[in-house]
């Protein structure tokens, strides 16, 4: 997977998490996922389609999700499964929305779909076309994992080039 696709996600995760939690974050380990995706906690999946297609999974352990929810709300919130899921989905939505904004302004045209809870324990194994990069973001509330699998949609790009050339 090309770095130009990944960098906006790293920047967005860093900026959104630091801003939402009012505390600096650091980007921890990166790894290419060779085995299939394995869920760690509460996970939200966001699909993208257009010039670039694929999906991003945001994965947070339940305790971290509650701490993040309370920090984002500015008050201690009572623990609930629904709140954990809502928090992870909204966090994913904000990080990915910000990354998509950067990529669109760079000339890639695609749309982001609403976040969905990812409940499977395992996901598809990545292929050469859609390698998955897993990154860990360390925050004051705990670790947040982001799993990005995307590829260029060459057919879309060719169609747009052809239209532009007419």
């Amino acid at each position: 997977m090309r770095m130009e696709l990944i960098q906006p996600f790293i920047n967005a995760a860093d900026a959104v998490l630091a801003d939402s939690l009012q505390s600096p974050t650091s980007i921890g380990n990166f790894s290419m996922e060779e085995e299939g995706y394995r869920r760690r906690g509460v996970a939200a999946l966001i699909a993208v389609s257009g010039d670039i297609e694929g999906r991003i999974i945001f994965d947070v352990d339940p305790k971290t999700a509650m701490r993040v929810a309370s920090r984002m709300a500015g008050q201690e919130l009572a623990e609930s499964q629904e709140l954990m899921c809502e928090t992870v989905c909204e966090l994913a939505n904000q990080v990915i929305g910000n990354a998509i904004t950067t990529l669109n302004d760079q000339g890639f045209h695609f749309r982001v779909h609403p976040p969905e809870l990812h409940t499977s324990e395992h996901g598809d194994k990545s292929s050469e076309d859609t390698e998955a990069l897993v990154m860990c973001i360390e925050t004051c509330s705990g670790k947040v994992f982001m799993n990005v699998a995307m590829r260029y949609n060459s057919r879309r790009r060719e169609e747009r080039t052809a239209v532009a050339g007419q």
């Binding site: 959104v16 939505n93 904000q94 990080v95 990915i96 929305g97 910000n98 998509i100 904004t101 950067t102 669109n104 302004d105 045209h109 982001v112």
Partner: peptide, 9 residues
């Protein structure tokens, strides 16, 4: 109010 704030949008 959206996280998707690119110019076209």
């Amino acid at each position: 109010v959206s996280s998707v704030g690119y110019q076209d949008n």
